[in-house]
């Protein structure tokens, strides 16, 4: 199978999955006790506004037509109005989504790369004390309770030591100042991102490291490693040219499988650090019964996970020619 074919096939599969999720949510909204209309329309609205919104969302139509409206509204970006913000949901999502993608992708990529790199090193020192210690530390990191470690970081780095912002993504006074250029602003975001990123990194890197370690050990007993050794390659060349690329394939698979786990962690991290992302928005909306916002946030989080899945699949096919052809 060529790479294009693979992408097309996986995209179609993902589209189907997305439709199932979309429809599942519709069903849940109508199965749940209570009135679906009151869930989508802010009780504080004026009756005229409410009526307009109801007809826009098709909530006055028979059920099957409501579904058609629902799907159509999704693709035209009409998710209703957020109760809390009093603004169209699509605007809120549009602002929050990039922040989530920034934090999510950088944490996944960084932790996977670090896991691969360190796992390779540790496997090479199998049986030595460093191996045992790194293994145990990785296990501990992997099972740390994320919100707690986030709170702990805020307490230690931002409160006790200082030098780190307690919350948010930007320093308002810097952004208000017309003199601060794009460079300063980027630096400011990175400064705010450091602790959330570190939290997610620590939670993820351990498991990737352990997978890389054991996959590396398995790879080292493969026949082609013997070939490489017989060819006269030194140990470093064997590790980096032959064992490493093959051993990192299971890590890529595991990144794909743990994407959902990562987005859970991302939402928790955003909440504790008040990072203005879509995951925090979902948790906030759910806590405040802001259903239109909750629904749309969930759908967009699903889209992020699905697309990330596609990217991981394509990456895997790119790294492993056996899948590609």
């Amino acid at each position: 199978m060529s790479l294009q074919k693979l992408i097309i096939r996986r995209s179609l599969e993902i589209l189907v999955i997305f439709f199932v999720i979309l429809s599942g949510l519709f069903l849940l909204f109508h199965l749940a006790p209570g009135d679906p209309v009151s869930r989508m329309v802010d009780p504080t609205m004026t009756p005229e506004d409410a009526e307009l919104l109801v007809s826009q969302l098709g909530l006055d139509q028979p059920l099957w037509l409501q579904y058609v409206y629902y799907v159509k509204n999704f693709f035209t970006g009409n998710f209703g109005v957020s109760f809390h913000y009093g603004r169209p949901v699509v605007e809120v999502i549009g602002e929050r989504l990039p922040n989530t993608i920034l934090l999510f992708t950088s944490s996944v990529i960084l932790s996977a790369l670090a896991g691969i790199f360190w796992g390779k090193m540790v496997a090479w020192h199998k049986g030595k004390p460093v191996d045992t210690w790194v293994t145990i530390i990785s296990l501990v990191c992997h099972t740390l309770f994320l919100p707690w470690i986030a709170l702990l970081f805020i307490w230690i780095f931002a409160y006790k030591i200082g030098g780190f912002p307690l919350n948010g993504m930007i320093s308002p006074e810097l952004w208000m100042d017309p003199d601060s250029g794009i460079f300063l602003k980027t630096l400011d975001i990175m400064h705010h991102m450091l602790l959330p990123l570190l939290t997610l990194f620590i939670i993820h890197v351990g498991s990737y490291l352990l997978i890389m370690r054991s996959s590396m050990l398995e790879t080292l007993s493969e026949d082609y490693i013997l070939t490489a050794r017989a060819k006269g390659l030194n140990e470093k060349q064997i590790r980096n040219r032959h064992a490493g690329p093959n051993a990192s394939l299971p890590v890529v698979t595991s990144v794909g499988l743990s994407l959902a786990f990562s987005i859970n962690g991302g939402a928790l991290t955003e909440t504790v650090f008040t990072w203005p992302g879509i995951g925090r928005e979902l948790i906030f909306a759910v806590s405040n019964n802001d259903y239109p916002l909750a629904l749309a946030s969930f759908l967009f989080i699903s889209i992020v996970v699905l697309i990330a899945n596609l990217v991981v699949d394509v990456l895997y096919a790119f790294l492993d020619p056996r899948i590609r052809y």
Partner: peptide, 8 residues
């Protein structure tokens, strides 16, 4: 079968 590195 296994003497070749599969990804090169």
């Amino acid at each position: 079968m296994n003497a070749w590195n599969p990804v090169q």
